[in-house]
């Protein structure tokens, strides 16, 4: 397979520097409003600050890929004696919790690194420098572009698992054959 250059965008999160102000949430929600900056609402933000001052917990988490199903179990971290909420470090919008979902529609949210901006807005607005931005290039194998049918099938795989899909296709194929042989 061909090797290609791929841009990797990294937001470095230094929780020790976080002052808990939630400017990241404010500006994220504002940037992604339509039209741009026309409203503000941290509940729509693609970054969420888990903040518990009395326990000294400050944890900015970015919305990652949507997960249609929740994991088989949950995790709970204790770091330096501080106990974090279940699944606190997870970036997925998933059925197990409310975060990273549009408050009205429940549709999943995902960080897009503010696409064409020189730096994601959350980084630009974090004067505490808890969030900093890095870009680097990596060599990666060229991805094969998926066709329409593959995209459709892939989402079914995501939802039901490959085995169930294969079984279903096989069952359908059998039926189909049965009909034609009639």
């Amino acid at each position: 397979m061909n090797k290609v250059k791929k841009k990797v965008k990294v937001i470095k999160i230094d929780v020790d520097k976080c002052n808990g102000c939630r400017a990241c949430e404010v500006i994220c929600s504002s940037f992604h409003a339509t039209p741009k900056y026309s409203s503000s609402n941290p509940a729509r933000s693609r970054i969420r600050l888990i903040r518990d001052p009395l326990k000294d917990i400050y944890l900015p988490v970015y919305a990652g890929e949507h997960a249609a199903a929740e994991c088989m179990g949950r995790d709970k971290y204790v770091v330096n004696g501080k106990e974090y909420d279940e699944c606190a470090f997870c970036r997925a919008s998933c059925p197990s919790r409310d975060v990273f979902k549009e408050p009205d529609s429940g549709l999943p949210l995902k960080c897009d690194m503010c696409e064409d901006e020189k730096e994601p807005l959350c980084v630009q607005w974090c004067l505490a420098e808890a969030l900093t931005y890095e870009e680097r290039e990596e060599e990666a194998e060229e991805e094969v572009q998926l066709g329409d049918m593959e995209i459709g099938l892939k989402s079914l795989v995501d939802k039901y698992g490959l085995q169930q899909l294969v079984d279903t296709v096989a069952r359908l194929a059998n039926k189909e054959r049965g009909h034609t042989s009639d």
Binding site: N19, C21, R22, V26, P53, Y58
Partner: peptide, 12 residues
């Protein structure tokens, strides 16, 4: 333990 801020303010 930590210097902290109010909502949407960079001052600690």
């Amino acid at each position: 333990t930590r210097l902290i801020s109010c909502y949407n303010c960079p001052l600690k």
